[in-house]
């Protein structure tokens, strides 16, 4: 388990990093925490010619909380999110979801930029970005662009990133204090990739009915997905037992999870329904 040989650079500016990536002809990879890439190198599943290490780049490690929401620099680590007490109020869904990311050692190194770019279908961070209408700031040879999470994740371990592009920031819109929310996932062991996970939030209108429902799921498809049928079943309704059952049923009907060695698709489907129902139950308690 030795990686194949590669060249290594640790530029001190973003522009330099982008130039290095552009010079790699599609065979250069960004590395930061290395929690996804290093195992892939060790197994020789990835064999880039060049690794561009972001460790000397400044300014990408900040968590900014303002009226427009939360901005997470690409080098923000899971432990930074865990340790930022402000987020429990400013973005409770994010704070809760990140508690479930891997184990202590991984959380000390893994970064949100790495997780978004790696785009594992079971990972929490892409789920948060998608469910919360997050937007990625992306810098490449062509300049800076902003892309919505909904078009960023394109398949298993696939994103819309060009080979010379780097995710520099994730923006999550502002979180009203009265918002109802829940995060639920279930893994074989705590910290493992979830066999299914659900992220949800909604607001209550004057009639105490759910509006603006956002329901996302991880671990049940090629990439994180929004459960629009379930959102439709929730919107405009009071969150009662019957409503919860209807939302869960709509969600289960709308998905077709794959099977792997850890769980058959049928189990993942049922599990998602269970987690969604329990999450909704929790959101009203």
């Amino acid at each position: 388990m030795k990686p194949p040989s590669f060249a290594y650079a640790s530029p001190s500016t973003l522009a330099e990093a982008v130039n290095l990536l552009a010079s790699g002809n599609g065979n250069a990879k960004v590395i930061s925490g290395g929690q996804s890439l290093m195992p892939m190198l060790a197994f020789r599943l990835a064999a880039p010619d060049l690794l561009v290490d972001l460790k000397h780049l400044k300014d990408l490690g900040t968590i900014t909380i303002g009226d427009d929401g939360v901005r997470l620099g690409a080098k923000v680590r899971w432990c930074d999110i865990e340790n930022d007490r402000r987020l429990v109020r400013s973005h409770p869904l994010l704070a809760e979801a990140i508690k479930h990311v891997a184990h202590y050692q991984v959380r000390n190194r893994g970064t949100i930029g790495g997780s978004l770019a790696h785009a594992d279908p079971s990972a929490e961070m892409p789920g948060v970005a998608l469910t919360c209408d997050g937007e990625m700031t992306i810098v490449g040879s062509g300049g800076t662009r902003v892309e919505k999470a909904s078009s960023f994740f394109t398949g298993p371990l696939q994103t819309s990133l060009e080979p010379d592009e780097i995710v520099t920031e994730l923006h999550l819109p502002a979180w009203p204090a009265t918002r109802r929310w829940a995060f639920r996932e279930f893994a074989r062991r705590k910290g493992d990739f979830a066999m299914a996970g659900v992220l949800l939030f909604y607001d209550l209108d004057h009639r105490n009915c759910a509006v603006d429902a956002h329901i996302g799921a991880i671990g049940i498809a090629d990439c994180p997905i929004r459960l629009s049928a379930a959102e439709a079943a929730l919107n405009g309704n009071a969150v009662t037992e019957d409503c919860i059952a209807a939302v869960a049923a709509a969600a289960k009907e709308s998905i077709d999870p794959p099977s792997d060695i850890h769980a058959p698709g049928a189990y993942r489907r049922a599990l998602l329904g269970t987690l969604l129902a329990r999450g909704l139950q929790h959101s009203i308690s």
Binding site: P39, F43, H103, R188, R189, K190, D192, F193, I261, H262
Partner: peptide
């Protein structure tokens, strides 16, 4: 063999 790492072969950890 489909289980080639500790991501797929699940060992109990100290906290399980």
């Amino acid at each position: 063999l489909l289980t080639g790492s500790f991501a797929d072969y699940l060992l109990p950890t100290a906290s399980d």
